[in-house]
Design a protein around this nucleic acid. Structure first.
Length: 281
DNA sequence: ATAATATGGTGAT
DNA sequence: TCACCCTATTATC
């Protein structure tokens, strides 16, 4: 389940993460810039698993933040701090004073006004420019980046025999899409998950890209994934409720919002895939 | 106390 | 295809 505690000020701690897709990472990059940019940061790893890296960064100034797909970067002098949340990683932050470290706390940043905590990441490591370049070279275009190479995505899909459901989760093909956005964008375009990439009309692939740009941008703004159009919600007005947020993700066994057919789910390359067998044919 | 769950990813076979 | 890595929370014995 998503962990996203939203508060209205007072400096109460805010948790962001809990199985994120690209929108979460871009939101964190923006948030960390706002909280810590330009500040000298006290860096530690109370848990100890990032002790050496933390010692290297301690007392340096945060000069920038960046996101590409599900990868988050902080810039400190010549170092890149690279973080990947994976399935379990979570960030928490708040106004000073910082709470005493407790639990498995991989990384703790304390700035002039704010603190940031990281626990459970798949990756928390230092990189030099060449290592970061090598990592980015293995990632496909990110719909949230202005420099995204759309043509590379379209070409890759157009020549692949793999199912489009597989391609959308392949970070070498497109970076930042996870299981929710995958299921939802396929539904929104009426695309059968198992259709081979090469069999999709180019216009459909292009339309899915354009749609993902908008959906992910909405996700960054809202801090959560909402893919339904108002008219497809049980309650069309007001802030979308959790139960109204998706067309197919997490709705196995429930009726399709458009046609009433039962939503199906199945294991697909180790991940759970949701789809409507009528709307996505 | 133990297991199951989760929107992710790597590396070996 | 499988084993394995991260962690917190919830469900089950």
């Amino acid at each position: 389940m998503p962990t996203l505690t939203r508060t209205s000020g007072l400096g109460r701690p805010v948790t962001i993460g809990g199985v994120p897709e690209g929108h979460t990472i871009h939101r964190l990059a923006r948030r960390h810039r706002r909280l810590l940019h330009g500040q000298v940061v006290e860096v530690s790893s109370p848990q100890g698993r990032f002790a050496e890296g933390a010692a290297q960064l301690d007392g340096r100034r945060l000069e920038g933040t960046d996101a590409w797909g599900k990868h988050l970067f902080h810039r400190y002098d010549d170092w890149w701090l690279h973080i990947h949340l994976g399935l379990f990683g979570k960030f928490r932050d708040g106004a000073l004073p910082a709470p005493e470290p407790r639990g498995a706390l991989r990384l703790r940043l304390v700035g002039e006004r704010s603190w940031v905590e990281l626990r459970g990441p798949t990756a928390c490591e230092l990189m030099v420019d060449a290592e970061r370049d090598a990592l980015l070279s293995r990632l496909g275009p990110d719909p949230l980046r202005k420099d995204a190479d759309v043509e590379a995505f379209l070409a890759r899909v157009a020549r692949s025999r793999a199912p489009i459901a597989t391609l959308l989760m392949d970070q070498k093909v497109i970076a930042g899409v996870g299981n929710v956005y995958r299921a939802e964008v396929l539904f929104r375009h009426g695309v059968a998950p198992l259709a081979a990439g090469r069999d999709l009309p180019g216009e459909v692939t292009a339309a899915m890209w354009d749609d993902l740009v908008g959906l992910l941008e909405d996700g960054v703004r809202a801090g959560r994934i909402v893919t339904t159009e108002p008219e497809d919600r049980e309650r069309p007005h007001g802030r979308p409720r959790r139960v109204d947020a998706h067309y197919v993700y997490g709705r196995a066994g429930l009726p399709c919002r458009r046609c009433g057919t039962e939503i199906l789910d199945a294991d697909h390359v180790g991940r759970r895939l949701f789809w409507c067998p009528v709307c996505e044919a």
